[in-house]
Computed example of a mutant assay.
Amino acid sequence: MTYPAPRPPAPRSGADVAISIVVLVLTVVMGAAAVFFGVFSLAFLDHCPPETCSVDGAVNAVFTALLVAAGVGVVGLVLTVVALIRRATAWPYALATFALCALTLFLGGVGYGAAVG
Rank of each mutant, 00 (worst) to 15 (best):
Y112H: 13
F106Y: 12
I21G: 10
L79Q: 11
T64D: 12
V62H: 07
L77G: 10
T104F: 09
G38K: 06
A99K: 03
G71K: 10
G108T: 05
G109R: 02
C53H: 04
R86N: 15
L79R: 08
R87N: 02
P50W: 04
A96V: 15
G57F: 03
F63E: 04
R86I: 04
D46L: 13
L95N: 08
V22D: 12
L100F: 12
V23C: 02
V23H: 03
L24E: 08
G108E: 05
L26H: 04
L95P: 01
F44C: 02
L45S: 00
F36R: 11
A70F: 13
A61I: 00
Y112Q: 05
D56T: 12
V25K: 04
P6S: 04
M30S: 10
V39T: 14
A70L: 13
V82K: 13
M1G: 14
P92D: 03
G57E: 00
V29S: 07
S13L: 06
L100I: 13
F37M: 15
F63W: 15
A18S: 14
F40V: 09
G111I: 01
R87T: 00
V17Y: 12
D46G: 08
Y3R: 15
V25L: 11
Y3S: 09
V28E: 09
S13C: 05
V35F: 15
T27R: 04
Y3P: 01
A90K: 05
V55K: 09
G111W: 06
T89R: 07
A99G: 09
M30L: 15
V116Y: 02
I85F: 14
V116S: 02
V68Q: 08
F106E: 07
L24I: 02
M30T: 13
S20K: 01
F106Q: 09
L66S: 00
L45G: 03
G109T: 04
V62S: 06
D46C: 07
V35C: 07
H47T: 14
V39W: 11
F36T: 11
G14T: 07
C48V: 02
V59Y: 05
C53M: 07
Y3F: 10
G31N: 12
G76A: 05
V17S: 12
A65C: 03
P9W: 06
L107H: 09
G108H: 05
D56N: 14
L100R: 05
G57T: 00
G71H: 06
T52K: 12
V72N: 06
S54R: 04
A32D: 05
P8F: 14
S54N: 05
I85G: 08
V39E: 15
H47M: 08
G71V: 08
Y93P: 02
T97M: 14
S41N: 09
V81R: 07
V25N: 04
R87L: 02
P50N: 06
A94D: 01
V23R: 03
A15S: 08
A65N: 01
G14H: 06
P92E: 08
D56A: 09
S41D: 10
A5L: 08
T64C: 07
V116T: 13
M30Y: 03
V59G: 00
L107K: 03
F36A: 13
P9D: 09
A96D: 05
V81W: 10
P6Q: 06
